[in-house]
C-alpha cells in the first residue's frame, strides 16, 4: 500500500520529478561556480571540494528542499480529494486511518528520494574534488549538513501535507503552506522579543536548535516543539479525512 501511494507522489512530473531536477541542477551549479572561482582566483579560493562545496551543497539542498518539499507535501495532502481519486481509495475498503498513515510514510520516503540523490552527488563532490587541507571536512560536519538538509524540508513537507488535507485544493494548499513557511513562521519568531522561551518554541528557532543551531532551549524540548508544530496540522488533516464524505 505504501509503495502504491509512493508511486502516486513520485509520478507527478511537475512537483516531484521537476523538483528533483531543480535540486540536482542546483548542486551542479554549485560545482560549476566553485570550479570557475577556483580557476579565476585560485589563491583566494583554493578549494573546489571540501568545506566550500559542503556549504554550497548543504545550502542548496536545504533551501530548494524546503520549497519543493512544501509543493510535494501540499499535493500529497490535497491531490486525491481535488482530483476525485480519494473516493476510489476509500472504496477499496482500506480504512481511512491506514490510508492517511500510508500517505504520510510515502511522503517521508518521497522526500528522501527527492533529496538523497542530490546529497549523494554533493557529498561525492565534497570528498572527491580537490580541496585545501584547511577546508577538509569531518564526518561529523557531513552528518550535520545531511541532517539539516533533510529535516527542514521533511518538517515543512509534513506540515504542508496536513494543510493540504485540511484545505483539499491544490493551489490553495500550496499557497498557504508557502505563506506559513516564509511569512508566518518568521513573523512568529518575533515573539522572542516578548518572551524568550516562547520565541524559542516557535517552529524556526526550534527546528534550528534540533539541527544544531544555537538557542538556550534543551534539544529534547526543541524536538518536542517541532513535533507539535508538525502534529497539529497533521491531526487536523486526519480529522478532516475521517469526517469528510467523498
Amino acid at each position: 500500500m505504501i509503495r502504491s501511494t509512493l508511486r502516486t507522489i513520485t509520478g507527478r512530473r511537475g512537483s516531484f520529478r521537476g523538483g528533483g531536477l531543480v535540486i540536482l541542477a542546483g548542486i551542479f551549479l554549485v560545482i560549476v561556480v566553485l570550479l570557475v572561482v577556483n580557476e579565476l582566483r585560485p589563491v583566494r579560493n583554493p578549494s573546489i571540494g571540501g568545506q566550500p562545496m559542503l556549504d554550497g551543497v548543504g545550502g542548496v539542498v536545504w533551501a530548494l528542499g524546503i520549497v519543493i518539499g512544501i509543493l510535494v507535501g501540499a499535493l500529497a495532502g490535497s491531490y486525491d480529494v481535488a482530483q476525485g481519486t480519494m473516493r476510489y481509495l476509500v472504496l477499496t475498503g482500506v480504512g481511512r486511518v491506514r490510508l492517511y498513515a500510508a500517505r504520510t510514510i510515502a511522503l517521508v520516503a518521497a522526500i528522501g528520494l527527492l533529496l538523497l540523490p542530490a546529497l549523494a552527488i554533493g557529498i561525492v563532490a565534497v570528498l572527491v574534488l580537490p580541496s585545501d587541507p584547511n577546508d577538509e571536512v569531518t564526518a561529523g560536519e557531513l552528518a550535520d549538513v545531511v541532517w539539516t538538509a533533510v529535516v527542514w524540508p521533511l518538517v515543512f513537507a509534513l506540515i504542508a501535507m496536513g494543510i493540504g488535507s485540511v484545505l483539499r485544493s491544490n493551489g490553495v494548499a500550496i499557497a498557504i503552506s508557502l505563506l506559513f513557511a516564509f511569512a508566518a513562521s518568521p513573523l512568529l519568531t518575533l515573539l522572542e522579543a516578548w518572551n524568550e522561551t516562547i520565541g524559542d518554541l516557535m517552529l524556526l528557532p526550534a527546528l534550528d536548535r534540533v539541527t544544531g543551531g544555537g538557542s538556550s532551549l534543551a534539544i529534547p524540548v526543541a524536538a518536542l516543539a517541532v513535533f507539535g508544530w508538525v502534529a497539529v496540522p497533521w491531526l487536523l488533516g486526519l480529522a478532516r479525512h475521517l469526517r469528510d464524505e467523498y
Binding site: M1, S4, T5, R7, G11, T92
Partner: peptide
C-alpha cells in the same frame, strides 16, 4: 500515470 500503472496503484491497496 498510464492506465496499467493506475491499476497497479489500486491493486496495491
Amino acid at each position: 500515470l498510464t492506465g496499467r500503472r493506475n491499476l497497479e496503484v489500486w491493486a496495491g491497496l
